[in-house]
Design a protein around this nucleic acid. Structure first.
Length: 351
DNA sequence: AATGCGGGGTA
DNA sequence: TACCCAGCATT
């Protein structure tokens, strides 16, 4: 399935569009500043790129500002306790990213004197930095002429070539087609293509009349660009059910514990729960008490839907092991993922 | 090559 | 509701 278009990908047209319409983002050096010699800070580009993995710009902005305020350099982040990094990451999702972020900072300080490697190949050996992120950092910070292929580019290129198969079945062909189009301004080109995908060639709206790539775009020529990219068959989302137990002591403090270091929500904070299974079984309470049903919480993960029945009770402070008691007013500072903030809210706590 | 891994914005 | 987002690590 060769890719074909009567026009090569016109990087000059894309750059000209970017010079006029670049998004203003907290981690970005504008094309105008870039031309005067301003260089992006690799630390901030790296941090933003990790946060942006499978995460929207809107969700990332406040986290990015918070992180750079707390830890302005890679040395600050490397010296921070992992626990505090996980706490600040809480709510952003994909928590392995936070662990890898900290591990990467430690590696850069210990093995590279606090200076990020400048090639995409070297960058990709660092924790949490894969094919996309290594290329993005190398292009944006150092103008390495490398193809930067993310979800936006998948969509833009699938439309440009009217790709008749799902993107995952033609990834390397798309990469090769993009690679030959990378211009001297490799960093601006990468950001331009992503901006184009985010604004003009969007998932549910394609503004072909103002698109700099329209002259060669096969999907635009066909007349229905939203037909692309072709979706692979979707698996349906199973349901898992269980119980969550919110325990309060006489002072009103709530019992919390840490999740295991691997797997779902690894290392994050939770309240005790039952096993999660396809069929709801009767609750087995952690302690005998006057348990009260406080309602149900529904939470959607990528690969399953979770329904938790929320129970609460006042319990004696002994008989529990491995966790700690937290004042309700301090819950905001705990590494609680959104699921357990919902559970606490159902039990009448702010979360 | 396929799977596990969050959460929110948006239509 | 369903989709999709500046993907990576593991198997």
């Amino acid at each position: 399935m060769p890719l074909s278009s009567p026009h090569a990908l016109d990087s000059s047209a894309v750059l000209a569009w970017y010079d006029l319409h670049a998004r203003d983002l907290p981690w970005r050096v504008s094309p105008a500043d870039r031309r005067t010699g301003v260089k992006p800070d690799p630390y901030k580009i790296w941090l933003s790129e990790v946060m942006l993995q499978q995460t929207t710009v809107a969700a990332v902005k406040s986290y990015f500002v918070r992180f750079t305020s707390l830890w302005p350099t890679v040395f600050d982040l490397a010296n921070a306790p992992l626990d505090s990094v996980l706490r600040e990451w809480a709510g952003l999702g994909y928590y392995a990213r936070a662990r890898n972020l900290h591990a990467c900072a430690v590696t850069v300080v210990r093995d590279h004197g606090g200076v990020f490697p400048t090639s995409s190949v070297a960058l990709q050996s660092l924790p949490g930095i894969g094919a996309y992120t290594s290329a993005a950092i190398a292009a944006i910070c150092f103008d390495e002429p490398v193809a930067v292929l993310d979800g936006n580019l998948d969509r833009v290129l699938a439309r440009y070539y009217a790709l008749s198969v799902p993107v995952r079945d033609a990834k390397e062909q798309l990469r090769a087609a993009l690679q030959v189009a990378v211009p001297h301004r490799a960093g601006d080109f990468a950001q331009a293509m992503m901006d184009l995908g985010a604004t003009i060639c969007a998932p549910r709206n394609a503004s072909c009349l103002i698109c700099p790539l329209q002259p060669g775009c096969m999907a635009a020529r066909e007349g229905n660009p939203l037909l692309y990219p072709i979706k692979p068959a979707k698996a349906e989302r199973p349901v898992r059910k269980g119980h969550a137990f919110v325990m309060l002591d006489a002072a009103g403090d709530v019992y919390l514990q840490s999740r295991p270091g691997k797997g779902l929500l690894a290392g994050m904070t939770e309240v005790p729960t039952s096993e999660w299974s396809a069929d709801l079984v009767d609750p087995i309470y952690p302690l005998p008490a006057n348990w009260r049903h406080r309602g149900q919480v529904v939470h959607i993960f990528t690969h399953f839907r979770l329904e938790l029945e929320v129970w609460s009770a006042v319990v004696p402070p002994e008989g529990l092991d491995g966790g700690w008691w937290s004042e309700p007013a301090l819950l905001g500072g705990e590494a609680l993922p959104t699921l357990f903030r919902k559970v606490l809210a159902a039990a009448g706590l702010d979360g």
